[in-house]
Write a protein that binds this DNA or RNA. Structure first.
Lengths: 212, 212
DNA sequence: AGCAAAATACTCCATTCGGCTGATTTCTTC
DNA sequence: GAAGAAATCAGCCGAATGGAGTATTTTGCT
């Protein structure tokens, strides 16, 4: 099988060297370019059509996260593995939103890089354990909302709220559930009281749990 | 170090046997109970205070996902690893929302279970590669919305939409931005046109990127 | 069987929302 | 400096929304 082409985007010369060496020693990979600047990366990478990019976050010119967005907008098939020492929520989730397929923190890089690459190429999303835990926990519904409040909603109330959260209007909810629009209103009144909100928009916020 | 106690929740007798055997052969684990029914699981597990639960989804009595919710509501520190053959989005994401810490599909169970357990216990979230990819991709913002549409919003339009997404009413947005309510309406009108939606609720859905 | 909760339905009323049309004033940008 | 985009403000209208009150039927559970 043909080797996969790899580009490393990293500005620290020491890390360029050390990570570059690691990559060069991995079987099946061709490190075709090392780039130290974000703007340069978005400029020249599209012409190099690599299979993989190993991307740092803290880059001069333009952050690695913005690079992801830009590069993937044109070449959605590129697999980007974030390789960084940041593990704050913003870095992690903005990277994933930008389209990164994996996220390794540098400290466990040496050991894991080979299997991360295999994982990437075989359809997975390699993440450092602590990152995976964060990502998974981000789905978890916090106590406060789901247990104290949402759970007091009755079956029908939940259905109504769910449809509302999909953008349905009262009339459409009524048709969907085979009840009258008045009943929908009654349910919503009770929902708003239970959730202590005053509009559908606020109720949806509680449902989606976006405290912001 | 003290062994970790494990409960297996699985209704298929064959799998009870085979998975049970695998667990018993893993070092550092004590398989203290095998349960074949969802309702029984939520009833007796709290008294057994296990460290880990390996949970099937398709159970009689009550689904493994509901079991997660219920059990974690009382004992949030339990680590639950979903062990199932389902890999549809609903199963995966509802499990994570319910609080599962890992998700393995049964076919690559034998090979991965040991390292999955180590991963779990050391703060990670083991997932089958295809599951991790799904989870990661769920963060990705679809082309259509973020690139073509959201980016065409002007500064002020984004501010208005942002406040709207926090549950503000027109009047409140106007006060917040020191503009008149008519201006807010104008911005909203342009936003709705650009996003091709017909209501604030739908606009928020696009913003939060919650398809369906 | 009987009670409590849930689900259903309706009316009245005030507010809000969204569509439509228009306008003036910056601010960029070429 | 002219063209165009962005931001501002305004009024009208009909539909949708939300609050309060009330009442009947159905369900769930003991």
């Amino acid at each position: 099988m043909k080797n996969k082409t790899v580009i490393l985007v990293e500005d620290d010369p020491d890390l360029q060297e050390s990570i570059g060496q690691i990559i060069r020693h991995l079987p099946g990979l061709d490190l075709i370019k090392i780039i130290g600047d974000g703007l340069e990366a978005v400029k020249i990478i599209p012409d190099l059509h690599p299979d993989l990019i190993f991307m740092d976050i803290n880059l001069p010119g333009c952050s690695g996260i913005e690079c992801c967005s830009t590069l993937l907008a044109e070449n959605p098939e590129i697999l980007i593995l974030m390789l960084t020492s940041f593990e704050d929520d913003d870095s992690v989730f903005n990277s994933l939103k930008a389209g990164a397929t994996g996220y390794l923190i540098k400290k466990d890089l040496t050991l894991k890089l080979q299997e991360a690459v295999e994982d990437l190429l075989s359809g997975g999303s390699p993440m450092s354990p602590s990152i995976a835990r964060r990502v998974v926990n981000s789905f978890r519904k916090p106590e406060a909302v789901s247990n104290q409040q949402l759970e007091t909603l009755t079956i029908q109330e939940e259905k109504v709220l769910h449809l509302l959260s999909k953008g349905y209007q009262y009339r459409e909810i009524a048709n969907e559930l085979f009840i009258s629009i008045f009943t929908v209103k009654t349910h919503l009144r009770n929902i708003y009281r239970k959730l202590q909100v005053r509009s559908g928009t606020e109720a949806i916020l509680k449902l989606f749990n976006k405290p912001s």
